[in-house]
Each structure stands twice: as C-alpha cells, then as structure tokens.
C-alpha cells in the first residue's frame, strides 16, 4: 500500500503543472525510495524524468512497488481543487485501479477527498547512463526562463554557446536576431543568484524553443537550473527538489 503525505499540496501541484504540457499519460512508479516518473513527449524529442524522494514527504510508506498510470490532464484538474498550503496525502492499494487524494486544510477541519481512475499505460523505459558532459552551467532558473521567452519571439531555435568565461544564448529569425551573454558570478549574499560554468570542452548546441518553453515550466520548483550539455547529444535541464529532481533530456537540432 502507498501512503504519502506532503506537508504542502503546492509541491505536487507545481510538479504536475511543470510536466503536463510535455507528456500526458505517464506511470508514477512508487517504491520505498519515493515516486519516479519517466516519459517521452509525443514527438519523441523530450524526455521527462522525475524523482520525488521519500524525504520530501512528511510521512511516507510504500511496502511494495506500485505503478499508478495517470492521465496528467485529469490529475491536474483534481489537484487544483486543493489549497496550496493543504496537507495532501496520496493513497493507493497494492494493485490499484484508482488513487485517492486527501486534502486537509490546516486552518479548519475541512477534509476534501478525490479519487482518480488509473489507466494501463504501456511505456518503454529508457536506460539513461550517467554521462560526462562537455559543460555544466548553473544559473537562476527565472533568468533562464526569461532569456528563453525573450528569444522565442525571434526564432524557433535557441543556440547555446559556452566557453570558460561566458554563456551565450542566441536566436536568429526572419525578423531579426537576438543574443544574451552571461558571465560567471558568485553572489555570496544571494547564492541563488550565482552563475557557474564548468567546462571540459567548449559547447555550441542548438535546441528547439518549443521544447524549452515546456521545460521552463519547472521554474517554480527551484531557484536554480542546472544545464548539462555536450556537443551533439541530448542536454540535461535539471530542477533540484529538496530530495529528488525534475529532469528534462532534450535532443539537439543540428545540420546534417
């Protein structure tokens, strides 16, 4: 049986809002370690990988592995019914055909209970090995979101160039071009404002902004985004959770 209690419903709300436009049907695999999701978008360009570690929950038990096949659009509708500050408990039997969500308002005795029917979802699981990346950058997630939104007004593609002392984001379109250059900086008072670059090799990669627009929906999950890039392989965009992560693997675009 699964019983996982979040101190605040807002975390799961944010997670679901962050991925529901990338993938619709996905299996939430629950184990003693927490809840994981892996799913690929319909165009098979973007892979979502989520781990909500058991330490995120104020109470968590899951005796044996349980798979919850969830339609995220329906899940999002139910989860919006709860208040952000409510306790939220997910409950499921061992071979469930539904999952129960219990919201408890902390300021009153109100308890709201919803159940969502589960689906049989047949998805392949991709094996993702740890890779050495040419470059790893860490920067404020909100800045990355703004840069991508600004440049998406010009082009469908975002070019990212990384050298040891700068990160350059570029977009070239029919109406004009744009670029934003960032330099590494350490902010001691506000570490979340820092920008770091770790470089093994200089990087020049191009990505579809349509996918990046979905990735930046994870911005509210973490102050910082970690971007790991190698030339000609999928980039990893990561928002860290208190325990776990939301990762997006995005296949690059390139000239043949």
């Amino acid at each position: 049986m699964l019983e996982g209690k979040f101190e605040e419903a807002s975390l799961l709300k944010k997670v679901v809002e962050s991925i529901k436009d990338s993938v619709q049907l996905c299996n939430f695999v629950c184990s003693e370690h927490g809840i994981t999701v892996q799913a690929v978008d319909d165009s098979r360009v973007l892979l979502v990988s989520l781990l909500i570690g058991n330490e995120v929950f104020s109470d968590y038990r899951c005796d044996r592995n349980i798979t919850l096949g969830v339609d995220l659009k329906s899940f999002a509708k139910i989860i919006r019914c709860g208040g952000n500050d409510d306790y939220l408990t997910l409950i499921a039997e061992d071979s469930p055909d539904s999952v129960t969500l219990v919201f408890e308002d902390k300021n009153s005795d109100r308890i709201s209970e919803y159940s969502l029917k589960l689906m049989e979802i047949d998805n392949e699981f991709l094996k993702i090995d740890d890779m050495d990346y040419d470059s790893v950058i860490k920067m404020p997630s909100i800045d990355f979101q703004k840069i991508c939104r600004d440049l998406s007004t010009l082009s469908e593609s975002l070019q990212i160039l990384i050298t040891k002392d700068s990160i350059k984001f570029m977009a070239e379109g029919e109406t004009g071009n744009g670029s934003v250059i960032l330099k590494p900086r350490t902010d001691i008072d506000k570490p979340e404002q820092s920008i770091t670059v770790k470089l093994n090799n200089a990087v020049n990669s191009t990505f579809g902004l349509k996918y990046i627009a979905d990735i930046v929906k994870g911005t509210s999950l973490s102050n910082q985004i970690v971007i790991k890039i190698s030339n000609r392989t999928p980039a990893l965009f990561e928002y860290k959770l208190q325990s776990g992560y939301l990762r997006f693997y995005l296949a690059p675009k390139f000239e043949d």
Partner: peptide, 14 residues
C-alpha cells in the same frame, strides 16, 4: 534549418 533529432537516437530501451 537544422534537423531535430529524436531522443531514441541516443537512449536505448531497457
């Protein structure tokens, strides 16, 4: 314009 690669070109099904 550049070609969009698929994620399956890089990761294998386990």
């Amino acid at each position: 314009s550049p070609m969009q690669k698929k994620i399956y070109n890089y990761f294998v099904t386990s």
